[in-house]
Structures are given as C-alpha cells and as structure tokens.
Amino acid sequence: MGYSSSLIQRKFKDIVGRRYEAVLKDYSEFLLTDEEMLVPEVRSILMPLDIFVHDITDEAIEVLSAYNATISLAYITDAGVIELLEQALNHASTEEFRAKKEEEGRELLERTAAKLKEHGFSTQTRMFVGHKGDDVVRIAKNHDMVALCRRYADGESTDVSVSPIVLRICQRVETPALIY
C-alpha cells in the first residue's frame, strides 16, 4: 500500500469512523450480493407432472421465462399403485387402469406443453411408470433446475401446504428447485 493510499485510509477512518459499516449493513437488507446477482445458467428444466398437478401458475411461467431453457415435462404414474392393483385385481383390470392413467397423462402433457409453447418455451415430454420421488431426483441430475408443483404426488387436499414428496425431492436434488 502506497503512502497516498494509506493516508486516505487513515483520513477515512478518522472522518467516517464506524459509520460505513453501519451503512453497509443497512444496504445489505435490500441489495443483492454479487453471488445473488449472477443469474445461473439454466438450459433445461425438469417439470414433473402427475394427476394432482392441474395447471402451471402464471407466476411460475414468469419466473421460468427468465431462463432461455427447454422444459422437460415428465408424467409419472406411481409404480407402487400399479403394483398394489396387480396384487389386488387381475392383470386386465390393471392394464385398463394403466391405460386410463396414461390417457390422462397424455392429455395433461399436451395441455401443459401447449400452454408453455404459447409463452415461447420449447418443450419435451415423456411418460413412464416409476417412483415419483426417487425418479425425479435421478432424472434431475441431467437438468439444470427442477420446477415442482407443491401438489405433486400429494392428493386432492385443499390446504396450501407443500406435499411431503416435494419437500423430500428438494432436500435431495443438487440442482436448484422452484416450487410453484
């Protein structure tokens, strides 16, 4: 540190005292830090769907539109339910149930993809039978973000709480997660 620099720091200390630290503390309440200011690079977003996800909120679409990313819509039918049905009913009834669920899933995927396309997103769709928690965590490794509806894998309850499966996914995924 040169003489002029140390002189300015001495004078600064004498003139300002500890006031600068207090000012910085006040500003830190509402200014973004350098880290927060960096918009993470997000190229692909995984969006799991199931029968409990009826729609994507406008707020979620607004946030997602900040990233120029492809959205992978994944409709997952619970493998546990299929297994239980196979044990309780005959194979034909299970297949009938499965076909019905797949039909519902296809409709939801098409409807959601169309809505996202309207907002300028490029989308990919897939549908499979699997575990709604474990499989999302597994697939999320290949994506930069996961967008989860708080009703995903929940039930038809009307309260505003977040589904336990969604909370578990958030605890386990390494990518950023958005709950809408």
Partner: peptide
C-alpha cells in the same frame, strides 16, 4: 484526493 472530506470518503469506500 485529500482536498475535501467527501473525496476521502468516496475514495476510501472505493478502495475498500
């Protein structure tokens, strides 16, 4: 840079 207190304060903050 040391001509007035405002100079010292702004340059001091910038250095920090």
């Amino acid at each position: 840079a040391i001509g007035a207190s405002a100079n010292v304060v702004v340059i001091g903050i910038a250095e920090r």
